[in-house]
Design a protein around this nucleic acid. Structure first.
Length: 311
DNA sequence: AAGACGAAAGTGGTTGA
DNA sequence: TCAACAACTTTCGTCTT
């Protein structure tokens, strides 16, 4: 019941994004924003004395002792290794019989440490995964698929030589695509700690290695999300997906970036249904440029006999 | 003034020799 | 490994509403 608890309770809103979904991570002593991942308070550790004291003399004597254990080391900095030696603790030569036992103990000690390393990797990866997933509001099922991929990646020893963050982000990206709720590489790259480029590289390596079959993304998969961000009516959504269907039938989508096609379809639909959004608005949400929207929508309107000017 | 349009040059990734 | 290539972006000037 230190005074820190009280101070933490006073922070109710993220200073960065204003979200009130704050998450107290007692293990790491951090107060974290669920939405953007900002650490609002990283010192939520009770820094008071370890024991109660009953008078001022004891108070001084019983102040903090030694560094706090830390999760940054897999064994919290507390483990002990067994040295390779043929002598015992008093410096005498060890009898043969004991050496074998000593050797076995060393072996198990090593194995336990390895197991801890894997576990620590996983703990770190899962927290990173949760951070990314919650900051872009990915549902639980997506996270679970991503965890499955990640565990497969560990089993295949793919992590070595790559960053944990990178592999985690790649797993999430793959999981999104697998579940037909695609996020773009940019969207995931923005909230993860790795560059878009590295994310793409890791992702390609990942799907090849763990053998997940991923179909190319359809623009259709983006319609709902983009539309809801644009706040257009259901009529526009229906129209947009109708356009996409036609476009796919006429093979106007192959080789084109799905986000560009989706954005153009939404733009056309918004104009046709009388709920015009500017190219810039749609472009921003679709993570493409206005030029791309223009190019796509010229192709689409030409082939689909939609005259945008008549309305 | 804001949005739409289009030309031109630049960028990053894929493909095939 | 390298060059060719298509898609896409960036930038900027012009036209339209």
């Amino acid at each position: 019941m230190g005074k820190r608890d009280i101070e933490i309770d006073e922070i109710t809103q993220c200073t960065e994004c204003g979200s009130e979904n704050l998450n107290q991570d007692h293990e790491r002593g951090e107060l974290v924003c669920d939405k953007c991942g900002l650490v609002l308070d990283d010192s939520a550790i009770d820094q008071g004395k370890d024991w109660r004291s009953f008078d001022s003399e004891q108070d001084n004597a019983k102040a903090h002792s030694g560094p706090a254990s830390t999760l940054m080391l897999h064994d919290k900095g507390l483990s002990t290794g067994l040295p390779f030696s043929t002598r015992d603790s008093s410096g005498k030569n060890m009898p043969m019989k004991n050496r074998a036992q000593w050797y076995r103990m060393r072996k198990w000690q090593r194995r336990i440490r390895v197991a801890n390393a894997v576990e620590r990797n996983l703990v770190f990866a899962l927290s990173e995964l949760d951070r990314i997933a919650s900051s872009i509001n990915l549902p639980r099922s997506i996270r679970e698929t991503a965890v499955v991929y990640y565990k497969r990646a560990i089993a295949l020893n793919l992590i070595r030589g790559r960053s944990i963050e990178g592999v985690v982000a790649a797993c999430l990206y793959a999981s999104c695509r697998k579940n037909n709720v695609p996020r773009t590489l940019d969207e995931i790259g923005d909230v993860s700690k790795v560059s878009r480029k590295e994310l793409g590289r890791t992702y390609r390596f990942l799907v090849r290695s763990i053998g997940v079959k991923l179909l190319p993304t359809s623009p259709q998969d983006y319609i709902l999300r983009f539309c809801s961000e644009l706040q257009v009516s259901n009529k526009v959504i229906a129209k947009a997906s109708e356009i996409i269907k036609e476009a796919e039938r006429l093979e106007l989508t192959s080789g084109r970036g799905p986000t560009g096609v989706a954005a153009a379809a939404i733009y056309i639909a918004s104009v046709v249904m009388g709920e015009r959004r500017t190219q810039r608005e749609v472009a921003e949400i679709g993570c493409v440029t206005e030029v791309t929207i223009r190019n796509r929508y010229k192709e689409l309107s030409a082939r689909l006999d939609i005259d945008v000017n008549v309305m």
